[in-house]
Computed example of a mutant assay.
Amino acid sequence: MEQSMQTKRSFLIGGAAALATPTLLTAPSVLAAQDAPQRNASSFVTQEWQDHFSALGNGAILADIASRALHYWAADGTYRLYPSSVPMSEELTRRGYSQIVRKRVGPSWTPTASMRERDPDLPQSIEGGVPGNPLGTHAMYLDWPAYLIHGTHDTRKIGRQSSSGCIGLYNEHIAELFSVVEVGTQVRLL
């Protein structure tokens, strides 16, 4: 009886595998033929700083909202690319040229009036260094009020439209960027 059950089980598993094989072998070509939607990682396209800035200066940051990527060029032309979170909606999105006006390790967070309007249950503020702080471990402030490039403890937000206007990075990426970006670095949100 036991050998009969093993034979039936082997037959069923082998049959299922045989039926699935043609589907698995043709899956990539089927997806390509249907022009499957691009995932965020595949939408990262290397940019050239010359297409966005007249001079490199002490460095440049391009936050590409459409591809959810942040591009950084150091003064020597070294290039880095980071996945990012972007604003939840077009009305929360600000585009144009700005610059880094200050940097802070362990930033505290205070929701803006519009954030509190959308969610009255938000706390008045959250001190820096607290795991629930939406600004993560580091923040770089733009010359536009309430717009930042910052880290996040909620890694699910990266690669998504999830912010109230800011550009978010993984904490390890913002720490790396923070260490090389100077106050005065030019920024473009595209």
Rank of each mutant, 00 (worst) to 15 (best):
L62H: 11
L62M: 00
A63Y: 04
D64W: 03
S67E: 08
S67V: 12
A69I: 06
A69M: 09
A69Y: 02
H71A: 02
Y72Q: 05
A74F: 02
A75L: 01
D76P: 02
T78Q: 06
R80W: 09
L81V: 08
L81W: 03
Y82C: 05
Y82W: 02
P83R: 11
M88C: 00
L92K: 03
R95A: 08
S98P: 04
Q99A: 12
Q99H: 12
I100R: 03
I100H: 05
V101Y: 14
V101G: 13
V101T: 15
R102T: 13
R104M: 15
V105G: 11
P107A: 11
P111N: 14
R116P: 05
D119A: 06
D121P: 02
D121N: 14
Q124K: 15
S125F: 15
I126C: 03
G129T: 05
N133R: 00
M140I: 01
Y141F: 07
L142Q: 06
D143I: 01
A146N: 09
A146Y: 05
H150N: 05
H153L: 10
G159P: 01
R160C: 06
S162L: 11
S162Y: 07
S162H: 05
S164D: 15
C166L: 11
G168R: 15
L169K: 07
N171A: 06
A175D: 15
L177N: 04
F178K: 13
S179W: 11
V180C: 08
V181T: 14
E182N: 14
Q186I: 14
